[in-house]
Amino acid sequence: MVAVDHYRQELRSLMDRAATQGAIDILINAGELCRTLRGGITATDACCKAMREELKPGDIVLIEPGAGVGTTIRYLLPRPSR
């Protein structure tokens, strides 16, 4: 099973690439993020936890974290320093 840290790294990588390309936000869906790593949608809890932990003021939860693979969050870019 894929650990929360792996999802966190992938999430931050997606954000960094989008910010580098000049995006002001990025829409992340848990199902899509889960499928980027070999854990697939069976690791939904770890994936959603990583997404929740990355929430910062100004980010918008479009579909609640209880929705599993449907969880969708709009993160503002660039991210504050970690």
Rank of each mutant, 00 (worst) to 15 (best):
Q21C: 11
Q21P: 04
Q21Y: 11
G22H: 05
G22Q: 09
G22R: 07
G22V: 06
G22N: 09
A23W: 06
A23Q: 13
A23P: 05
A23S: 11
I24V: 14
I24C: 11
I24N: 13
D25S: 15
D25C: 12
D25I: 02
D25F: 10
D25N: 13
I26S: 00
I26M: 01
I26H: 00
I28G: 05
I28R: 00
I28H: 00
N29C: 09
N29H: 06
A30H: 02
A30F: 00
A30R: 03
G31N: 08
G31S: 08
G31F: 02
E32K: 01
E32D: 15
L33K: 01
C34W: 04
C34A: 15
R35I: 12
R35Q: 13
T36M: 15
T36G: 04
T36F: 09
L37H: 11
L37V: 09
L37M: 12
L37G: 08
L37D: 03
L37F: 03
G39R: 07
G39Q: 09
G39E: 02
G40P: 12
G40H: 08
G40S: 09
G40N: 08
I41P: 00
T42L: 14
T42Y: 13
T42M: 14
T42F: 13
T42G: 15
T42W: 12
T42D: 13
A43P: 07
T44G: 08
T44Q: 14
T44V: 15
D45G: 13
A46Q: 12
A46F: 05
A46L: 03
C47H: 10
C48S: 14
C48H: 01
C48I: 13
K49C: 14
K49D: 14
K49T: 14
A50I: 05
A50M: 01
A50R: 04
A50L: 05
A50Y: 02
A50D: 01
M51L: 09
M51V: 07
M51I: 04
M51K: 00
M51C: 08
M51N: 02
R52Q: 15
E53T: 10
E53L: 15
L55S: 08
L55R: 08
L55G: 05
K56Q: 15
K56C: 14
P57A: 13
P57L: 09
P57H: 12
P57T: 11
G58A: 11
D59Q: 10
D59I: 09
D59T: 10
D59F: 11
I60G: 05
V61H: 06
V61F: 09
L62T: 04
L62M: 13
L62D: 09
L62A: 06
L62K: 04
I63E: 07
I63T: 12
E64R: 12
E64K: 12
E64M: 11
E64A: 15
P65N: 07
G66C: 14
G66H: 12
G66D: 13
A67T: 02
A67V: 02
A67Y: 04
A67I: 07
G68C: 06
V69D: 06
G70W: 04
G70N: 12
T71P: 02
T71G: 04
T72F: 03
T72Q: 00
T72A: 00
T72K: 04
T72E: 03
T72C: 05
I73Q: 01
I73P: 06
R74C: 06
R74Y: 03
R74T: 03
Y75D: 06
Y75H: 03
Y75N: 01
Y75G: 05
L76H: 10
L76I: 11
L77A: 01
L77W: 01
P78C: 08
P78N: 08
R79Q: 05
R79A: 03
